[in-house]
Simulated assay, not measured.
Amino acid sequence: MTRPPLASLLAPALLGLSLTALTTPPAQALEGDASAPIEVEANQLDLDDRAGTAIYTGDVDIRQGSMHLTGDRVEIRRNASGELSHAIATGERAYIEQQPAPDEPLVRGWGRTIVYYVAERRVELIDRAELHQGGDTFDGGYLEYFLDRRVVQARSEAEGVQERQRVRMTLQPEQ
């Protein structure tokens, strides 16, 4: 069995991890993000073609165009058909950001765990979760963002997290 090029495993993951749809439909993302080179830095990579996983560890930094994902560990999983099913970034403060359009503010998200479910186009920010867009912020133990519908669901508790983290939201008035 030949191993697929690393870029073929990463490309759909990074395109899917893009937070483009947090503020605009995917077609309005920064032009060139999807065709930009994928740059990955980590201390270690464990690639398992049979299991459909690529696990990066040690100060992981992934960039493609305006998208940036960091964590102590990033795991990318494929389903039985070889398609990306989800990506999980973990760390004391895993981080994801995207510039949705040249005239829109940067969207940033943090959590001890960030999970992106490709088929559902859904992002989970878990434990000390924060989502920032311009001056608007959402904080809590668990934030779930449905990319296409632009729906945020926030909870003070997350599964497996010991401490309650009250939900807080700050919205800036329209100018």
Rank of each mutant, 00 (worst) to 15 (best):
I62R: 00
P25T: 13
E163L: 13
T53M: 02
G135H: 09
L14D: 09
I62M: 10
S85R: 07
T20A: 15
A129L: 03
G32L: 03
A29L: 01
D48P: 00
F146L: 11
Q162C: 00
S18G: 15
L6M: 10
N79Q: 05
R128C: 14
V107N: 08
A21Q: 12
T70Y: 10
T23A: 11
I96G: 09
R168Y: 12
R50V: 13
H132G: 00
S18T: 11
T113L: 05
T57Y: 09
L84N: 02
E174N: 09
V152Q: 01
G16T: 15
T57E: 15
R164D: 10
R150E: 11
S85T: 14
I55H: 04
L10R: 11
R73W: 06
G32Y: 03
I55P: 00
V74F: 01
P37Q: 10
T24F: 04
P37H: 10
T90A: 02
P105H: 03
Q99W: 03
D103R: 09
G160M: 01
I88N: 07
S66E: 01
T23G: 07
G82H: 11
T53N: 06
P5M: 07
Q44W: 13
A129S: 04
G160C: 02
P25W: 08
R166C: 06
L15F: 07
V115Q: 08
D48S: 04
L15H: 07
R50A: 13
D103P: 00
T24G: 05
I55L: 14
V40Q: 04
L10P: 10
Q175L: 12
P102I: 03
V60C: 06
G111I: 04
V60T: 02
P102C: 05
P173S: 08
L14A: 09
D46S: 11
D49V: 13
L14H: 08
G16P: 01
V107Q: 06
D61V: 15
S8D: 15
E124N: 13
